[in-house]
């Protein structure tokens, strides 16, 4: 059981949690993740460790509520407990002084890119951060990124904030302007990562992506997280999660992530049902209490 110290929404359906996990806080490196279970029947959810505070013994995770399990997690608040937290899992990011490094985050991918951007800065890189979102409210962690990056460019698909266009268009603009870029890290939706890989390929820039396949154990035991890199299977949880973007088969990754679509739908319906039931029950309970205290 791990206590939630702080919980707040930082974007639509995107919630930041600071959780007590001293051992993980002490050990974790940029690029690693934890697996959590919200309750005792919970799914095992992989989530990147966005930050840590060794003196407070806490780690930070940032969660986008997209399905039943993440939405359930996002109903928790400071003072609540998460049933299981295990980690740090996966390999740490490979960090060195490349020169100029661009960190690209799309949506909640910005949270996953954040720790690596920070580490790249600490290693002496000139760090450029591109933060993409559909519209203004989906651009997250801009302030935090400004603390660790030399340049920060928010982009929105609809032009409601920052640069009007996709992250790849901003990247292309930087490349065309003749900026020397030595390293690119891209994390976000699979089509975005695939597009970044395509953008940097002709320039021969070392490009790394962090993959997000469906996982179970996160320790190499099940092989469910396998992805194909250089036409060979890899187990993302132990061999990754970061890989050479120019070698990843994004089509297979995308296809495999659709494996449970029908079940995910059923799961969210079940969640909504249970949730509404709980609300009804709570309302009922309040009414009863009311009557008891005043009756």
């Amino acid at each position: 059981m791990n206590k939630i110290i702080e919980a707040r929404f930082i974007g639509p359906d995107v919630k930041l949690f600071r959780i007590e996990a001293p051992k993980i806080a002490e050990k974790r490196k940029a690029g690693q993740f934890v697996i959590i279970r919200v309750n005792d029947t919970g799914e095992r959810l992989p989530l990147t460790i966005a930050d840590s505070d060794t003196s407070a013994g806490t780690i930070t995770i940032i969660v986008q509520g997209i399905g039943a399990s993440t939405k359930m997690l996002n109903t928790l608040n400071a003072g609540d407990y998460i049933h299981d937290v295990v980690g740090p899992l996966g390999k740490a990011s490979h960090i060195e002084n490349f020169g100029t490094a661009v960190s690209i985050g799309g949506g909640v991918g910005t949270a996953i890119a954040f720790p690596t951007a920070k580490a790249l800065k600490e290693a002496g890189n000139h760090v450029i951060s591109i933060i993409g979102g559909r519209s203004k409210e989906f651009v997250i962690l801009e302030e935090e990124m400004k603390q660790v990056a030399d340049e920060v460019y928010p982009t929105t698909d609809d032009g409601s904030y920052g640069y009007h266009g996709f992250v790849t268009q901003k990247l292309e603009e930087l490349l065309k302007s003749g900026r020397k870029i030595d390293f690119v890290l891209a994390i976000g939706p699979i089509p975005m990562m695939a597009a970044v890989a395509k953008t940097t390929q002709p320039y021969n820039i070392q490009t790394v992506v962090s993959l997000n396949p469906v996982m179970v154990d996160g320790t190499g035991m099940c092989g469910g997280c396998r992805a194909y890199v250089d036409n060979k299977p890899v187990f993302v949880c132990v061999d990754g999660p970061e890989f050479d973007a120019h070698k990843v088969d994004f089509k297979i990754l995308m296809q495999r992530n659709k494996m449970y679509l029908p079940q995910e739908k059923e799961s969210i319906e079940h969640f909504n049902h249970v949730c509404n039931y709980d609300k009804m029950y709570d309302a009922e309970a309040k009414k009863t209490n009311h009557e008891v205290t005043h009756g």
Binding site: T41, A68, G224
Partner: peptide
């Protein structure tokens, strides 16, 4: 999609109780 290792298949069913989906949310 549909090709499993026995470890994954059995872990989903035994440890994560996928046979009782969606009460147990692992699919």
């Amino acid at each position: 999609n549909g090709v499993y290792s026995a470890n994954e298949f059995l872990t989903r069913v035994n440890l994560m109780k996928a046979y009782d989906f969606p009460n147990n949310p692992t699919p």
